[in-house]
Simulated scan of single mutants.
Amino acid sequence: MRLDKFLKESRLVKRRVVAQEMIGIGAVRLNGRQCRSSAQVCVGDTVEIAYMTRVLKVTVLVDDEKELRKKQSIPYVLQEERRVNSDEKPW
C-alpha cells in the first residue's frame, strides 16, 4: 500500500492531500529515510510522522487496504511519542 494512503486510512492524517504535502516537505520518514508518497508500506515497517508539536514513531501492523477500512482493526502500534517546540524542525 502507498505511504500516503496508509497515513490517511490509518487515521494518522485526516486527508490524503495533507499526507502528500507532509511527505513532500520531509515530515514523514519510512524506516528512517525520507521517501515519496508512492513508497510501499509493508508490515513491520517503521513510520515517523512530525506534526507541529510532536513526533510519532509507529510500527505498521496491517498493510491491506480492506483490513484498514475495518474500524476494529488496529493498523499500527505506537513505539514512541515525543514533544518538540513549535519553532524547531525535527528534521
Rank of each mutant, 00 (worst) to 15 (best):
P75Q: 15
V47H: 06
G32S: 10
R16N: 13
C35W: 01
V41Y: 00
L61G: 06
R33I: 04
T59I: 15
A27D: 07
I25Y: 09
C42A: 10
R69K: 13
G44N: 07
A39R: 02
D87S: 11
V62N: 04
R33S: 12
K66E: 12
S37E: 10
G44H: 05
S10W: 00
N85E: 15
S86G: 06
V60C: 01
R36L: 13
K66W: 03
M22C: 05
Q40P: 03
D45K: 06
K14P: 09
G44K: 06
R69A: 08
R69D: 08
Q79L: 15
K71P: 04
R11E: 10
K57D: 03
V58S: 03
G26D: 05
V43K: 15
L30C: 02
G44M: 06
E67A: 06
I23Q: 01
I23N: 00
Y51A: 01
Q34V: 13
L68E: 02
R36F: 11
S86D: 13
V77P: 03
T53D: 15
K8W: 15
S10K: 03
E9K: 07
V17L: 10
V58Q: 01
F6V: 05
E67R: 07
A39H: 01
S37P: 14
R54C: 09
S38T: 15
R82G: 14
A19D: 00
W91T: 05
A19R: 01
M1Y: 13
R2H: 05
V43F: 05
R36T: 15
E9W: 01
K66S: 11
R54E: 12
V13R: 00
I49D: 03
K70Q: 13
V55N: 02
F6C: 04
K5D: 01
R82W: 12
E9D: 07
D63F: 01
R29F: 00
G24R: 04
T59N: 11
K5Q: 08
K14T: 10
E48D: 14
I49K: 04
V43Q: 14
V17R: 08
S38N: 14
R82I: 14
R36E: 13
T46F: 05
Q72K: 11
P75D: 15
V41W: 00
R29C: 00
A19G: 04
V17E: 12
R69P: 05
K71M: 11
V47C: 08
L78H: 12
E65D: 08
D63K: 02
F6Q: 01
N85R: 15
Q40R: 09
V17F: 06
R54P: 03
T59L: 15
T46D: 07
R29V: 01
R82Q: 15
K66D: 13
A50S: 11
K89G: 07
R11A: 10
R69Y: 11
R54T: 08
